[in-house]
Amino acid sequence: MDTLKFGDLVGVDKYGNKYYQNNYYFYGKNRWVEYNDKVFFDYDASQVPAEWHNWLHYMTDDPPTTNPRVQYKWMIDHTENFSGTNRQYVPYSTVKQKITQWQPKDGQKIKYNVK
């Protein structure tokens, strides 16, 4: 990243990020990721999916290309961190609302959350 490096392409993840390795470099610098060109300067560490995260951080030496992860049905798809964007997670208030909304006698329940 942001440096001139040479290495072997180990694999490409579903976002198009490329993972490299070159053991000529010192341990800790010998594995790196090159983000998809599409994201340009908007790259972020959370764009690395979990399985590649393991390899990139030396939790395992087997990249998901050779040893793919077991896919359980309870696993959800990885997403990047959307904080600061309009897709960010907003927790809903568990406090009772100060003002309650009128509900028409016959009709759907009218809900309105204060943003």
Binding site: K98, I99, T100, Q101, W102, P104, I110, Y112
Partner: peptide, 11 residues
């Protein structure tokens, strides 16, 4: 009284 049954959105 002004905290209950308020009209808060156009219907």
């Amino acid at each position: 009284g002004l905290k209950a049954q308020r009209l808060t959105v156009p219907l």
